[in-house]
């Protein structure tokens, strides 16, 4: 069990200190769908000012039920559309845009400078590839991956679990879109919030993150 006194000691005592501490950090996000777009928004609002954002897709009408895009952005690259929104939240934000597919051969180069990396893609095979590559090649970069956020199950079954040295997983580990389950905005955003929150806790140096 964590020590409440150490937790209290590490948590900033006011909002300005949160922003001051997070603004010095860089966050990498692979996949800007329901998880990545919303996690980026929450971290930008929290104070993170530098992001490396990777996605090769364009905004589609079917994305608008859970992803942070708007009808007038349909057809645009998700990277550009999200950059526009993040700059409305925080005009001084510094964004590095990656429009190519993230693969074993380029992941370490693209994300070597980040302080925490979020895996937020939808395919199971890509998740496995990203976790394996990042865990092996970016050992000093904390990694948060996601697994299981589809369907109508309780939002309370979405959780954050530390699974290794510097590696966390968010989700219920069960609910899979390949089983025909839908993606509901609230449950997806709960998972995105878990992902953003553990990232913030890591960046704030919380001892029990």
């Amino acid at each position: 069990m964590s020590d409440p006194s150490s937790r209290a000691a590490a948590c900033p005592t006011d909002q300005a200190e949160v922003v001051a501490r997070l603004s010095a950090s860089a966050v990498g996000i692979i996949g800007l769908g329901g998880l990545g777009s919303n996690a980026a928004m929450m971290l930008a609002r929290s104070g993170v000012r530098r992001f490396v954002l990777a996605d090769f897709d364009r905004v589609e009408g079917g994305n608008l039920n859970r992803q942070l895009y708007f009808e007038d952005q349909i057809g645009r690259p998700k990277t550009d559309a999200l950059a526009e929104t993040l700059r409305r939240i925080q005009p001084g934000i510094e964004l590095t845009i990656v429009g190519e597919r993230v693969e074993p051969g380029n992941l370490a180069r693209l994300f070597a400078g980040v302080d925490v990396l979020l895996e937020a893609v939808d395919s199971a095979e890509d998740k496995a590839m990203i976790v394996a590559t990042a865990a092996d090649e970016l050992r000093d970069v904390p990694l948060v991956w996601t697994s299981g956020l589809a369907g109508c199950g309780s939002a309370n079954s979405i959780r954050t679990l530390r699974v290794g040295d510097g590696v966390w997983v968010v989700g219920d580990l069960e609910a899979d879109i390949r089983d025909g389950l839908p993606l509901l905005a609230p449950r997806v955003m709960v998972a995105a919030a878990h992902q953003a929150h553990i990232a913030a806790r890591i960046l704030l140096g919380m001892p029990d993150a």
């Binding site: 996949g31 769908g33 329901g34 998880l35 990545g36 937020a120 893609v121 939808d122 395919s123 199971a124 095979e125 998740k127 496995a128 976790v131 394996a132 865990a135 092996d136 991956w145 996601t146 697994s147 299981g148 956020l149 589809a150 699974v163 290794g164 040295d165 590696v167 997983v169 989700g171 580990l173 069960e174 609910a175 899979d176 879109i177 390949r178 389950l181 993606l183 997806v188």
Partner: peptide, 29 residues
């Protein structure tokens, strides 16, 4: 796959007392 908290490839040799954890990646995002 993780062994003792570190990602492990299939050629990783297991040793006495190792903790092997295997997760299924679940699609959706």
């Amino acid at each position: 796959t993780f062994v003792n908290g570190r990602h492990a490839a299939d050629d990783r040799l297991l040793a006495e007392g190792d903790r092997l954890a295997i997760f299924p990646p679940i699609a959706g995002g």
